[in-house]
Amino acid sequence: MTTLPRIDAFTDELIAIRHDIHAHPEIGFEEQRTAAIVAAYLHELGIDVHTGVGKTGVVGLIDGKRGPGQTLGLRADMDALPMDEETGLAFASKHPGRFHGCGHDGHTTMLLGAARYLAETRDFAGRVVLIFQPAEEGLGGARTMIAEALFERFPCDEIYALHNAPHLDHGQIRVMSGKAMAGAEFFDIVIRGRGSHGAQPNHARDPIVVATQLSQAMQSIVSRNTNPLDAAVVSITQLHSGSAYNVIPQSATLSGTIRTFDDDVAALIHQRIRALAAGLASAYGVEIEVDIRNIFSVLENHPSQTEALAAAAREIVGDANVADLGRPVMGSEDFADMLKRVPGSYCWVGHAGDVPVHNPAFVLDDGIVPIGASLLARVAERRLNELAAASTARAVNA
């Protein structure tokens, strides 16, 4: 494994920054402190900094010293999760209900490390756009940055990102061309019935009975309506109703998520949920309101950029540690929306530890920081110089 020596020399500084961000987590669109740390660090490096892009997002611009060329984006997410931390770390979250349980503190720090390396060396042609994104965890941070003219203000020819992966061994990197992560919808289904005394159910139109029927019926959608070769998930993750032992409530709410890799499959699932809800509403004499919201697009990596990312990864961790992911995953990632606008690729970097992300005991291994920083720096440096060389060769041969 050959992480960049220049990055190794300031890794302790990066880890200290990560620990500070970890101790002060901020959820989506509240990343004021984190964004200020990022902006101040970039300013100290002499980088052109733009704040407030997508509410709390930060963008930095670095021009290479090898002359004009293409523009390459590097993106990291900054937000934490609305959950408690149970790691016992000395630098654990100081804020109850806020926890960097997905490792975005690490991703932010890795991009800061890559930024320092690229700002100090500038050994590339063209420009690097550093994108520190807010609100990845289901709140639409990428879409908000895009809607606020991210790529009109800071055009990119290619874009890259990574995510930590505790299910892989330390230093392993996995790439995948094509559809790699599922698209996702969140849904809320409100059932409005008629409440009554619990001892007199004959006076009620019980929304809990309807909710349980609908929950069971929805489990048949994937097994009995979608093509068995089309991967899909329908998960009900919340059921809220009632406030007393002896009161049949007025309403009940089901909430959850849908995951697919195909828009037509998603549309089929939406239609079946609405049809089941309408049928049960008629059968039980209640009202059912269905709200389904698209949150994540399908993440689709582009072939040329995936190979470029893999080539850079092989330089950092060696051929034996870089492989194809093998099959797509049902998790989702809003970097997918950036990939719909700009060709690029997203990869997974393994680290020590076997507790999954989004678990209250998740711990990000500090040893991944120089690996991720080196990978981001190397793919930018390597790819921009490669594209510049290809452009020069075309001009000579024209």
Rank of each mutant, 00 (worst) to 15 (best):
A114Y: 12
H100R: 07
L239K: 00
A398S: 08
P25Y: 08
G198I: 07
I15M: 09
I159S: 03
L325R: 03
I288Y: 00
Q70N: 06
A217D: 08
H104L: 09
G367V: 10
A308R: 10
D262S: 10
E300D: 11
H167P: 09
A320M: 06
D79I: 03
I258D: 05
V58S: 03
E307N: 11
L376H: 15
A336T: 14
M83E: 05
P25G: 00
G344S: 10
A36L: 08
I159Y: 11
G171M: 07
E315D: 08
G344T: 13
D105K: 13
G367N: 09
L214V: 12
D365W: 10
N202F: 15
N321C: 06
P134K: 01
R116K: 14
H203P: 02
R18A: 01
N301M: 06
E44M: 02
S243Q: 04
I62N: 04
M83Y: 12
A147Y: 14
A380S: 01
G106C: 09
A39C: 04
V53E: 01
E85R: 00
K55R: 14
P134H: 05
P82V: 07
Q32P: 11
P96I: 03
G344C: 10
G331E: 03
N385M: 02
D188I: 09
V349D: 01
R143F: 12
E315S: 04
L112I: 12
A149W: 07
K340Y: 13
G57F: 10
N246L: 00
A393I: 04
A76L: 05
S235L: 12
F10H: 00
D79W: 03
N227F: 13
F91Y: 15
S196N: 14
H24W: 11
L376F: 15
A389D: 08
P5H: 02
A312P: 15
L299C: 11
I47S: 07
S223Y: 15
N246F: 03
G350R: 04
R259N: 14
H24S: 01
C102E: 11
V210I: 11
T51K: 01
I47M: 06
D48I: 08
A336I: 12
G353F: 13
W348H: 10
D319K: 05
P228M: 06
I146H: 05
L81I: 09
E333S: 08
A232D: 05
H167V: 12
Y41Q: 01
E120D: 13
L74T: 06
E152G: 09
N202W: 15
L239A: 04
T306Q: 03
I236M: 03
A310I: 07
T392L: 15
Y284A: 04
G178F: 12
P356F: 06
T3W: 04
R194G: 01
D354Y: 12
R382V: 14
M145P: 12
M78V: 02
L325C: 00
G285T: 07
E31I: 12
D12Q: 12
G67F: 08
L14G: 06
M145A: 02
I27Q: 03
I159C: 08
F132Y: 15
A373R: 11
L229C: 11
Y117P: 04
E26I: 09
T11G: 05
R143Q: 14
G57P: 14
A180N: 11
Y160N: 05
I221S: 02
G97W: 15
N294A: 03
